[in-house]
Design a binder for these strands. Structure first.
Lengths: 333, 333
DNA sequence: AATTGCACTGAAACCGGTTACTTTAACTAA
DNA sequence: TTAGTTAAAGTAACCGGTTTCAGTGCAATT
């Protein structure tokens, strides 16, 4: 149906090799010949077949984005950023929800490899070293997002989690909190761990500090909700809560509301991430905002640079976070 | 590097055709030959190259999902559903954010065609008939989501928008509202139009009804916010607002809160969609819930059936909506 | 015994590109 | 004049599969 490279070659009276050269703007093709070929391409409405190109060149202009769950608003912003960058560089993106399951990731990676994908943005905490090695062997570029590790055999983009946590606690202290608790994310998740460490660094020397001020909330709304109930049972005098992410902070808010606590008068709440949800709650949430879009953008840009051979070394990029003060810690005037 | 079909053929001492037959479980291959081939495949860790398969068969086991913006929580649930179904059927999904721009959609469709994509789930209101025809010609299956139109030359999945709107208004009437306004979505958007029509049908015969009770809110939080301010200036006695989607309803809540109105005592609010945001607001939002995941699921299933040739005719599927009563209309006890 | 049908398999064309290698002709340097 | 470049283009192998068509051997039919 559609015209092929051979049709173009025939019509412009050159070999397919020459047509291919024109398409890929390779080496030296006589300007006049070039014109003839281009004219033929137009006449036939020729468009290179990307699958054939992929087979021959082993480059498919496709990247994949692996993340736990797109329903998480943090990730949907990431997706948007990655897609934007990909799109404007002529790449297409395949989306993969792993649910944080190694098995799912495994099977995705496998099929992606068989599809000659050019690179992967990996926004998940479950990447294994073997996988990294395997991908390298298959010449699939890799950028890891929101991941901490001492091992750095690949490029990593993340926000300053520990520093952000310190900022959060420091803000709570500033507004006068006398006993600050922390609700933390999944153990095993490096991001959650770094935030917890930041909290600990700030509070461990206070006389009121006790490890029982640490409660797990699994990075979910409901987790934050349950954690708050548990926490206030043990420590009714807590007057500040630093939640390890915004979703849990929402849960905190819900719980406090249900318990009839006033925010921020009785208890101040600070989240982490800066997803748009924080503007929707009542009161609006103070949070440590990551530059979410920029994280995704940077990850995609670096990945594409690697794919295009413009970047060799593997670096760790740590983006700054910012404290956004809202009504959950200070009443705006 | 990796083993090819010819390696397998050589090792198992058959032709590549036979190996291909084993791979695709086609026709009759002698069980013993089959065993030999399979053993060779295992020995060589052979995995068919999907790009080559795609080129030869013009089937790539890939579908695309075109939607306005993944950041919209409604769509992120859709994505999740589509991806789940695709995944479990051996398909991979390419995500395309169109921002509702015909130009972007156009360029996506073009590149998708060149990639031999098998089908498209189109979750946007801007589809043009020419595109539908073109896709048909290229043998690319199509399912349209959340789209209304008299033209039905393709399969359409949507919720009962008009009926849902009627349910919303009817609920507001039941709880005693005496003057109900409607904030509607973008003109030109069929979904928004149908909801508006449902509202009108329910209220046009009341003496209090006036077309000025209709205010545009663009399906965004901020749009709902502005609309509410405008509305209450003109109609301070409105005591019920039906927002055309949940995002606008959130905006309504924010505006009312700012104006010091009590919800639902002074004003009752009902949204539409049933995104999880409605459980996060204070008060929680009454809404007409669409079965969002099911919409995406159904769309993907139908698409894949069409791709696999199991489904020929084009149907319109209308899924039921349900009223979820929450504190923005009735105080729970 | 000749014919037909069927199960099984192979040869080779094909999908639509890329690219290593070669050839040709014109151009430069010695 | 002659060898050495170089720009421009062609030939054909190659990427790794699918599929059409043809052929073989053997059992069933007449």
């Amino acid at each position: 149906m559609a015209a092929t490279i051979r049709d173009v070659a025939k019509l412009s009276d050159v070999s397919v090799a020459t047509v291919s050269r024109v398409i890929n703007q390779i080496s030296t093709v006589n300007p006049e010949t070039q014109k003839r070929v281009k004219k033929a391409m137009e006449q036939l409405k020729y468009e290179p077949n990307l699958v054939a190109q992929g087979l021959a060149s082993k480059k498919t202009q496709t990247i994949a984005l692996i993340l736990p769950n797109i329903s998480n608003p943090f990730f949907s912003d990431i997706v948007r950023a990655v897609e934007d960058v990909a799109q404007s560089n002529g790449f297409t993106v395949i989306l993969c929800n792993s649910d944080g399951l190694v098995s799912k990731e495994q099977s995705y990676i496998e099929v992606l490899r068989k599809k000659y994908i050019d690179g992967i943005v990996f926004a998940s905490n479950t990447l294994r070293i073997e996988d990294i090695e395997q991908l390298k062997k298959d010449n699939i570029s890799l950028v890891v997002l929101d991941y901490s590790s001492t091992m750095e055999s690949c490029s990593i983009i993340r926000a300053k989690n520990r520093e952000g946590a310190r900022m959060a606690v420091s803000h709570l202290l500033e507004i006068g909190c006398k006993k600050i608790a922390h609700i933390y994310g999944p153990i095993g998740d490096q991001t959650a761990k770094n935030r917890l460490e930041g909290y600990e660094e700030m509070v461990h020397s206070f006389s009121w500090y006790s490890p029982t001020l640490l409660v797990p909330g699994h990075f979910t709304i409901n987790g934050g909700f349950e954690a708050t109930k548990m926490l206030l049972e043990k420590h009714p005098d807590v007057d500040g809560i630093f939640a390890g992410n915004d979703l849990m902070a929402v849960g905190v808010l819900k719980a406090l509301h249900q318990m009839g606590k006033k925010i921020p008068e009785d208890l101040a709440v600070c989240g982490f991430d800066g997803i748009y949800l924080t503007e929707i709650t009542q009161p609006e949430l103070t949070t440590i905002a990551q530059p979410i879009y920029e994280l995704g953008e940077k990850a995609a840009k670096i990945l594409i640079n690697k794919i295009n051979g413009l970047l060799e070394e593997d670096n760790v990029y740590e983006l700054d976070v910012t404290l956004i003060k809202r009504d959950s810690t200070i009443k705006a005037h």
